[in-house]
Simulated scan of single mutants.
Amino acid sequence: MRRRRRGRWLGLALAALLLPAAADGPAFDANALRAIEQRYGAAAVQRVRDWRQLIDADQEQPLKAKLMAVNDFFNQLPFVDDIIHWKQSDYWATPVEFLATDGGDCEDFAIAKYFTLLEMGVPESRLQITYVKAVQLNQAHMVLAYYANPAADPLVLDNLVPEMRPGSSRSDLVPVYSFNGQGLWISRARGRGKRVGGSERLSLWQDLMSRMENRAPAAAPTHETAP
Score class of each variant (00 low, 15 high):
A44Y: 01
A44G: 02
V45D: 00
V45F: 00
R49G: 04
D50P: 02
D56P: 02
D56L: 14
D58V: 12
D58N: 15
Q59A: 05
Q61K: 13
P62R: 04
K64T: 13
A65F: 04
A65E: 13
K66W: 05
L67N: 05
L67P: 01
L67T: 00
A69I: 14
V70A: 11
V70E: 00
N71C: 00
N71W: 06
N75I: 08
Q76R: 15
L77D: 06
P78A: 10
P78H: 11
F79R: 09
V80F: 03
V80Q: 08
I83K: 11
I84G: 02
H85W: 04
K87W: 01
K87R: 15
Q88I: 06
S89C: 03
S89Y: 09
S89R: 13
D90H: 01
Y91A: 06
A93F: 01
A93H: 03
P95H: 06
P95W: 05
V96D: 02
E97I: 02
F98C: 07
A100C: 01
A100D: 03
T101C: 03
D105P: 02
D105A: 01
D108C: 05
K113A: 07
Y114H: 09
F115T: 06
F115V: 10
L117S: 02
L117H: 01
M120A: 08
G121M: 10
G121E: 06
V122H: 08
V122I: 12
P123L: 00
P123F: 00
E124P: 06
S125K: 12
S125A: 11
R126Q: 12
L127R: 12
Q128C: 06
Q128V: 07
Y131E: 02
